[in-house]
Simulated scan of single mutants.
Amino acid sequence: MRGSGPARSVLAAVAGIALSGSVAFAQGAAPAPAPAKPEMAANCPGLIAQRSPLFRQDLVRRVALASDQVRLTYIGHSTFLIESPQLVRIATDYNDYVRPPVTPDIATMNHAHTTHYTDRPDPNIKHVLRGWAGNEKPARIDIQEKDVRVRNVPTNIRTFEGGTERHGNSIFIFEIANLCIAHLGHLHHTLTQQQLDEIGRVDIVLVPVDGSYTLDLEGMIEVLKAMKAPLMIPMHYFSAYTLDRFLSRVRQDWEVEISDVPSVVVSKTTLPQKAKLLVLPGR
């Protein structure tokens, strides 16, 4: 998980928000003033409208996975590339702005902002899974692709007018190599016991940590405590300030590790014995 000196230097340039901002905070530099809580807008902030991501494929060794391993690579915003032992590739919250360097077999999407979905997915994607169904009907997804099962648990989202769009978001659950990975999408509320029961046991949770466009900070901590995943990976943060604010709060309850590279290989046997939050640098 620790990179060489040259790779670390390159990655710092590529993903300065996640790393150098955290270093400055750790060294005691005064954090930027807290931004005003943003109102709902057409897009989440923090994205450059271009399709070529800053993710550097050459910084991650693409080694073959054992039958009990999963590779997760943080591309940026709320997009991860998840790879299975049988080479099934999944892109979460697939959109027009940040895309993985390879065409996925499965693309999941959510409806809160255009930075979380696209109406123009790559036609070579085998399964395009939209986490909403329209007319406030819940999407119901449960598919199997080789060694990967994908299912969803619908949740609600806020509308631009301040109302509620029922079932506009889905928590996607990926069952791979005896691991259960949950991507919370654009979660706007805490979870009911029924939703937690539908999700089931979770080994890894991919969690939005901006604290404003999605669920507020304490609400998201409540969700993480309810899910009890041994490994938590943050996403959907827009600056060093929002990430550091979340990490400062999380350190009250869990260990925090900051990786030098945007990719991690996980198996059931390598999950932390004590719950931990792992920061993967990304765009």
Rank of each mutant, 00 (worst) to 15 (best):
I157L: 09
C44P: 00
D197W: 03
I141H: 00
S84H: 06
R151Q: 06
A112T: 11
V98P: 00
A66V: 05
S84E: 08
I173N: 03
H113R: 15
I48A: 11
V23K: 00
Y117P: 01
I176Q: 03
N178H: 10
R283K: 09
V88W: 05
G282S: 14
P272L: 06
Y237S: 08
I125S: 11
V207G: 00
H127K: 09
I75P: 07
V128D: 01
I199A: 03
D119M: 13
D68E: 12
M232K: 00
L72P: 06
G46N: 08
L243G: 05
D119G: 06
I17F: 08
D210A: 06
A7Y: 10
A41S: 15
P100G: 09
E161R: 07
L271C: 09
S22C: 00
S212F: 07
L87E: 15
D210G: 05
V150C: 01
A34N: 02
A13L: 12
P35S: 00
I82L: 13
D216Y: 08
Y117N: 14
A29E: 12
A18M: 02
G200P: 03
T214W: 04
H189M: 08
E145H: 04
H183M: 01
P154S: 04
N43Q: 13
Q27F: 11
Q252H: 15
P104F: 07
H236I: 05
I125C: 10
R149N: 11
L72V: 12
A13Y: 08
L19A: 00
T270C: 13
V98H: 00
H189V: 02
P100Y: 11
G200V: 03
P35I: 02
D210K: 07
I181R: 01
